[in-house]
Amino acid sequence: MLLLAIESSTGQVGCAVGGHEGVLASAHTSRGRRHAECLAPQIEFVCRQAQVELTDLGAVAVDVGPGLFTGLRVGIATAKALAQALAIPVIAIPSLDLLAFPARFSHRLIAAVIDARRGEIFYAFYRHVPGGVQRVSEPTLGSPDDLGSELLAAREEVLLVGDGALRYQGALPESSRIEVVEQGLANPSARTLALLAHARALREEWVQPWDVNPMYLRKPDAAIGWATRDGAAG
């Protein structure tokens, strides 16, 4: 089955077309956070390069976060619209899973860390299993200090990947057991998404487009006091 993978949960936006042969074509842009402007032309480009028509697709895969709200909105809306129009299902995969997967050849504990902005990060821990990685903690929204405490408590070697790990490298505990991957694994990749989604497509682990929602790890909510607005005549 051919599928289109759309990834936009960080400062990078990308897409890929893949199938049982692996990834056929992909494109990624990480300059200027122009998700809305870049994504549709990228999809057109990768389909042309892969010699795939949209009507050939059997599913759309999308990164559902956690990540940047502005980016996720663009990617998820595009994935849902395409899937709905083509009457095909959606495969939704969390950003942190995509980030950790390329580190699967390490037997160290893996921490996938995405920059949540304003001094916070999204993170989760993973372990190598045959053929991939398995998440061993819930995705968490916290501070670099929170992550640092968990790294020290883990008492084992940890490999960190993601833009959040890079940005806050200096705030993490200094230890020979803790290593941040400096290059190549800063952002989730649409290529990884295509690979992971294809395995799920074979097991028919998909959902309908209207059931896809972004994974927002959010802070407690509160109502805004609008005495002024609600009291006004109009």
Partner: peptide
């Protein structure tokens, strides 16, 4: 302009944290 928002969480949903950083 946050006049139309009902909850603080909606400010986050429009990408406030990204704009502030």
């Amino acid at each position: 302009d946050v006049y139309r928002l009902e909850n603080l969480r909606e400010a986050t949903d429009v990408g406030l944290d990204e704009m502030l950083d």
